[in-house]
Amino acid sequence: MFGGVRTFAVVLAMTAATPVFAQAPASLPPGVFAAERDIALATAGAYSLDEAHTAVIARVSHLGYSQSVFRFDRVKGSLTWNPAAIEKSQLSATVDTASIATNVKGFAEELAGDGFLKATAFPQATFVSTAFGPTDKTRGKVEGQFTLMGKTRPVTFDVELGGAGKGFGGKPRIGVRAVATINPQDYGMMPFFTDPIQIQIDTEFEKND
C-alpha cells in the first residue's frame, strides 16, 4: 500500500516539474499581420478610425451604488500621425449620441432623449485634439476640446499603445486605449450626476491609401 502511495507521489512530482509549453499559434491568413507593441511600426500619414473595432464606453456612478456602463456604437474619427514630431499629430473623433446602448431594457431610448443626452438637438459629441505629448515609448497624453450637448470644455486623454503593425493587406494599423474623465455638470447634465464620468475608448486606426 505504502509503495503504491510513494509511486503515485513520485509520478505526481515528475508531472509537476515537467514544463508545459503553450501550443504555437496557428499561422495567420496570407496578408494578415499581428500587432507588436512597437510604436516605430506606426508609419507617418493619415489614418481613419475602424468603427468595427472601436468601443466607446462611459462609466457613470449609479447613485453611488455601482458604476453603470454605457456603450456608444457609432463612431467616426481620423488621425494624422507624425512620429518625427509627435506634438504635430492631430486627432478628431465624432460619436453619435443616439447610438448609446445599455443592458437595462428600454433605458437607451430614455438616455438619448431630452431628459439626458438630448440626441435630437445635439446628435453628436466631438473631440478635437490640441496637443500630443508622449510620456514614454508606449504612453502619452492627448489634450483637446470635448463638445457634448452644445458645450465645449478642455479634456485630456491618457493614451496607451495597444499595438501597431502591417494590419490587413499590408495597410499599417495602430491600436490604442484612451481614458479621460469629465465633470457632468460642465455639460449641463442632471444635478444628480455629481461624480466624474469616465470615458474609455479602445480603437484601431488604419492608414489611408
Results as ranks from 00 to 15, higher is better:
58 A>W: 00
36 E>Y: 05
94 T>I: 08
65 Y>A: 10
46 A>Q: 14
10 V>M: 13
27 S>Y: 09
85 A>R: 11
11 V>H: 11
59 R>M: 03
49 L>S: 01
54 T>R: 01
73 D>W: 09
39 I>F: 05
107 F>A: 07
36 E>H: 12
18 T>E: 09
74 R>K: 15
112 A>K: 04
118 K>A: 10
78 S>K: 14
95 V>Y: 04
61 S>P: 02
95 V>E: 02
20 V>Y: 13
64 G>R: 00
13 A>Y: 09
74 R>V: 11
21 F>L: 14
90 Q>H: 12
114 D>M: 06
56 V>R: 00
37 R>W: 11
27 S>W: 10
79 L>A: 01
85 A>S: 10
23 Q>T: 13
72 F>Y: 08
112 A>E: 04
57 I>W: 01
55 A>V: 09
39 I>C: 02
85 A>D: 10
59 R>L: 04
50 D>Y: 02
109 E>K: 15
58 A>E: 01
53 H>N: 05
28 L>G: 04
100 I>Y: 06
66 S>M: 04
86 I>Y: 02
93 A>E: 05
39 I>E: 02
18 T>G: 11
99 S>I: 06
10 V>E: 11
116 F>T: 11
86 I>D: 01
30 P>R: 06
18 T>P: 07
29 P>V: 06
112 A>D: 06
94 T>D: 07
65 Y>E: 08
106 G>H: 03
41 L>P: 06
20 V>F: 12
47 Y>M: 03
16 A>W: 14
72 F>V: 04
105 K>R: 14
24 A>T: 14
62 H>A: 03
60 V>D: 00
87 E>Y: 03
57 I>T: 07
42 A>T: 06
93 A>I: 06
98 A>E: 07
115 G>M: 06
54 T>F: 00
48 S>V: 07
117 L>N: 04
43 T>W: 07
44 A>H: 06
50 D>S: 05
76 K>C: 03
17 A>G: 14
47 Y>S: 01
59 R>P: 00
58 A>S: 04
88 K>M: 08
33 F>Y: 15
23 Q>P: 10
23 Q>N: 13
110 E>Q: 15
40 A>C: 09
79 L>Y: 01
42 A>L: 02
46 A>E: 14
103 N>S: 15
46 A>D: 14
29 P>G: 05
42 A>M: 05
43 T>S: 09
17 A>Q: 10
102 T>Y: 08
88 K>P: 03
59 R>V: 01
111 L>W: 06
106 G>K: 03
97 T>C: 06
114 D>G: 14
82 N>G: 07
104 V>N: 05
21 F>N: 11
